[in-house]
């Protein structure tokens, strides 16, 4: 079993629901976004490119099969789940940020300050809270917590806490374009394997040799 994700860029409408759902479900501190939707070619984040065509590209942890972040972690806090996804043990991470230097996708984020204080920077109304309220442990290791300690690294955990309930990741469930699919990359008959094969699935930065588990399906030509 190798859990993978397919994102169909033809279906992505750029609404960023996945980024918002991810942010809310996973209680991310201010300024941290495990999942981001970008507009390749644009001069500023979130605006249309000056020339050519507009497309949207959601980027989160690629859960690489040859993951530099996993190899550099001095304390084995970043580790591989049996389904191939890369998780962070939030109780063991020492916060050296070597994994952030090692990741070519810029998906790893740091808790620069106390998470409670960080969220207050958004000036939400009193009583508003977000995030899946319960901790989740995988074989005793803390891989999701609504409040991470300051000074530890965090990133997309493939919603491992929802998998345990038989649910797909928040970004998949929240996508109104139905552009995201999760499945087994090892099974050639799975829906994701079939889509990658038949619709020219590709990876980001294949030249880095990281072998990501997130595949993208190219969009059709659109003139703007």
């Amino acid at each position: 079993m190798r859990r993978g994700m397919v994102i169909d860029l033809e279906k992505c409408i750029g609404c960023r629901s996945c980024a918002v759902a991810c942010k809310q479900h996973n209680a991310q501190p201010a300024g941290n976004w495990w999942n981001r939707v970008v507009t390749p070619g644009s001069e500023f984040h979130g605006v249309a490119p000056v020339k050519g065509k507009e497309l949207f590209l959601p980027v989160s942890c690629q859960h690489c099969a040859n993951a530099p972040c996993e190899k550099v972690c001095p304390v084995d806090a970043t580790f591989r789940h049996t389904d191939g996804s890369i998780l962070v043990d939030l109780e063991r991470c020492v916060g050296c940020r070597y994994c952030m230097a090692a990741c070519p996708y810029g998906v790893r984020q740091f808790n620069w300050e106390d998470p409670t204080r960080s969220v207050q920077r958004y000036e939400y109304q009193d009583g508003y809270t977000y995030g899946h309220p319960k901790q989740y442990r995988l074989n005793g290791r803390l891989v999701y917590a609504p409040l991470r300690a300051k000074g530890v690294v965090e990133k997309c955990n493939f919603c491992v806490h929802y998998q345990a309930q038989g649910l797909d990741p928040a970004c998949v469930r929240a996508c109104p374009g139905k552009a995201r699919f999760v499945g087994d990359l090892d099974d050639p008959n799975s829906e994701v394997s079939r889509m990658i094969r038949e619709m020219n699935g590709f990876n980001l930065l294949p030249e880095k040799g990281t072998k990501p588990s997130v595949f993208y399906l190219p969009p059709k030509r659109k003139e703007v």
Binding site: C73, V75, R97, F110, K150, V153
Partner: peptide, 15 residues
């Protein structure tokens, strides 16, 4: 180091 008190993990779980 963000969490210096956890540095003992370098001895307990060195990768």
């Amino acid at each position: 180091i963000g969490q210096p008190v956890r540095l003992y993990n370098m001895l307990l779980h060195p990768k």
